[in-house]
Amino acid sequence: MVNVEDLISQVLRIGVLTGVVITSIGFFTSAEIAWLGVFVLILTPFMRVIMAGLYFLSRKDLVYSALAAYVIMILVIGSFLRII
């Protein structure tokens, strides 16, 4: 059984490193690849909220699951807010 703290730690690390590598490759190749890298980077904190939410849900800790769900909802709403 993996600890939630260790799992979140790994998600953050792998997410950021992947994002940095892809964005850096994008610098030398194309804007599309850089876009993907930035996307992965922005997605990383989302992933860790989902991880934490699932952890609290598995422990039937409904208050904290609801908080995670709220944060994810705000993030999703934000990602649909397009200005201009």
């Binding site: 990383t44 904190p45 989302f46 860790r48 705000i74 993030l75 934000g78 990602s79 397009r82 200005i83």
Partner: peptide
């Protein structure tokens, strides 16, 4: 991290 991501996604989309 999550705070910056919440704002960044709006700038990103724009």
């Amino acid at each position: 991290g999550v705070t910056a991501a919440a704002s960044a996604v709006i700038y990103f989309q724009s």
